[in-house]
């Protein structure tokens, strides 16, 4: 464990908790893409199946359980409890255009052709594009609540910190995971436009240039 990976995990946890609390406190999921949250729940489900097969550390296991619990709770709040506030008219990204190619690619490019490994690869590829419905929805509505921009900032920051973690681990441990690194670069690049707006405009509740 290094400071970059720890900060990255905490940033990811912050993003997940910020979103869950925002929906719970305001009792509304306006401006939130339910499709992205469904994809994140799928990412955690397919990636953390090793919860049943291997124990790495208390930290590892507890964080995985927290991520899975929070992501399912978020999906539940969006599609069940506060369904009336779900903005389905603007959450129209065709997620099949993400899931199908990612599914195919995970069969073609992976570290090992075993079920757990293919599911892990699928979750890595899917995570890199899972935020697209949310970014697409914001570009359609042309605005984002302040708290939503903070969610996106921490969500994007986490994988950027993981990129630094991978440089660190390559330098000190001498190997790297090409699949995770390439997907992580793609994922972080998708946030660049948002990062620019978040930092220059503060983006605190102001309307985004469409």
């Amino acid at each position: 464990m290094n400071i970059f990976r720890l900060t990255g995990d905490l940033s990811h946890l912050a993003a997940i908790v910020i979103l869950l609390l925002k929906i719970w406190k305001t009792r509304s999921c306006a401006g939130i893409s339910g499709k992205s949250q469904l994809l994140f729940a799928l990412v955690f489900t397919t990636r953390y199946l090793d919860l049943f097969t291997s124990f790495i550390s208390l930290y590892n296991t507890s964080m995985k359980l927290i991520y899975i619990a929070c992501s399912y709770a978020t999906v539940y709040l969006i599609y069940m409890k506060f369904k009336a506030t779900y903005d389905g008219n603007h959450d129209t990204f065709r997620v099949e255009f993400l899931v199908v190619p990612v599914g195919g690619l995970s069969f073609l490019v992976n570290h090992d052709f075993s079920p757990l490994e293919i599911l892990w690869t699928f979750s890595i590829y899917l995570e890199s594009v899972a935020i697209l419905p949310q970014l697409f929805m914001i570009s359609k509505t042309g605005e984002a609540e302040t708290i939503t921009t903070h969610y996106l900032f921490f969500q994007g920051l986490y994988r950027a910190l993981y990129l630094v973690n991978w440089i660190w681990r390559f330098y000190f441990e001498g190997f790297f995971d090409l699949i995770a690194v390439v997907a992580g670069v793609v994922q972080t690049i998708l946030y660049c436009d948002f990062f620019y707006l978040y930092i220059t405009k503060g983006m605190s509740g102001c309307a985004l240039p469409a």
Binding site: R5, D9, H12, D50, S54, I56, S57, N60, M63, K64, Y67, H111, E117, W120, Y162, R169, G174, F175, F176, D177, L178, I179, A180
Partner: peptide, 10 residues
């Protein structure tokens, strides 16, 4: 091989 996947990462 010089790269393999990390199994200890979230």
């Amino acid at each position: 091989k010089q790269w393999s996947r990390w199994k200890d990462e979230l």
